[in-house]
């Protein structure tokens, strides 16, 4: 049976996903609140996997919490912390607990995180994790042994349309498609001309593309991302717009920019949907959806 998220992708509707960041610790209150707030407003909720290599409550734990609340989880899996046995085992666990969507990521380097002396695993990479899922769906683990009870997932990956040089990134995108990626969430996109150019290319492949929307909370954050975050380009006119916002109003301007961007993407059918990353400000995602004119729409279930 196809997952609710997969059904949404296949329905042709403008798909909306967002994400939840698990806590550092066992106090799940805030995470559960964010799940309650968003689960009925989106088609799928990613749960990040030790985002930026900072140790946190696990992605699968967050996905189980979403399932318990009858939401639709998208399990983010990086290859940084687990070898192939551990990744396969987690896929088995996920499947038995009704988690049907997986986002396959290589993962940030250990040294950018908060356990800088840890061993980075990277036994597999993102393309090989996709391959692994498709192998397991054939009834075998990747050691070639029979599985007693198989799996079936809607598997996706990420792509960075602003990466320079772009060609190696596109070659990797095609490898991910060949290894069975059904959907892609992009790195944050602000320049819609660049996204259009990428989409002209990506439309040739049988995959759904959800444009990444990262909430800009200030001009400073925008400049910081331009200088430090790979594959992100915030155009100067957006930075100016944020700078001109009255004191304390920059976040609201960011919400307006994000909502406005989503509305344009949908109206002009530039892509198949969006993935909204509020990074610690999940509270405002409903407002972004409202500005985008998507608040009236509900999940497909």
């Amino acid at each position: 049976m196809a997952s609710r998220f997969k059904e949404a992708l296949d329905s042709g509707k403008f798909v909306v996903t967002s994400e939840i960041g698990p806590p550092k610790g066992t106090n799940l209150e805030k995470m559960l609140h964010h799940i309650d707030l968003l689960k009925d407003k989106v088609d799928g909720l990613n749960v990040t996997d030790h985002q930026s290599s900072a140790m946190r409550f696990p992605s699968i734990g967050g996905c189980l919490a979403i399932k318990e609340k009858d939401g639709e989880p998208i399990l983010q899996m990086t290859c940084r912390d687990r070898n192939r046995l551990a990744l396969e085992a987690e896929l088995l666990l996920a499947y038995t607990r009704g988690i049907r969507n997986v986002l396959c990521l290589t993962g940030d380097a250990v040294v950018v995180g908060d356990h800088k002396e840890a061993k980075g695993v990277f036994d597999l990479d993102s393309t090989q994790l996709l391959w692994t899922i498709r192998q397991m769906e054939l009834g075998k683990d990747i050691g070639g042994n029979d599985l007693d009870g198989g799996v079936e997932f809607c598997a996706g990956a990420i792509v960075t349309p602003e990466q320079r040089p772009i060609e190696p990134q596109l070659m990797k995108f095609e490898k991910k498609v060949e290894q069975g990626a059904e959907f892609f969430q992009t790195q944050a996109i602000y320049d819609l001309d660049n996204l259009s150019k990428f989409m002209d290319y990506a439309r040739r492949f049988p995959v759904k593309i959800l444009a990444g929307i990262v909430l800009l909370s200030s001009a400073r954050m925008a400049k910081y991302m331009n200088e430090n975050v790979p594959g992100i380009f915030v155009p100067q006119d957006l930075i100016d717009e944020l700078s001109k916002a009255p004191k304390g109003e920059a976040v609201n301007k960011g919400i307006e920019i994000a909502g406005r961007t989503i509305a344009i993407l949908k109206k002009e059918s530039l892509c198949d949907g969006v993935h909204i990353m509020a990074i610690g400000r999940e509270e405002v995602v409903p407002q972004i959806l409202e500005v985008a004119g998507l608040s009236a729409e509900t999940m497909t279930h």
Binding site: R80, T106, A109, V112, G120, D125, I158, Q163, R164, Q169
Partner: peptide, 29 residues
């Protein structure tokens, strides 16, 4: 490649440099 990847660059590469150190080249670039 910092991560020892076999299938091309990760998403952390920026202008031909590695995400762990802007002084290091991205092997896949």
């Amino acid at each position: 490649c910092h991560k020892g990847l076999l299938n091309g660059p990760c998403g952390g590469t920026k202008d031909g440099k590695c995400e762990v150190d802007p002084d290091k080249d991205c092997a896949w670039t």
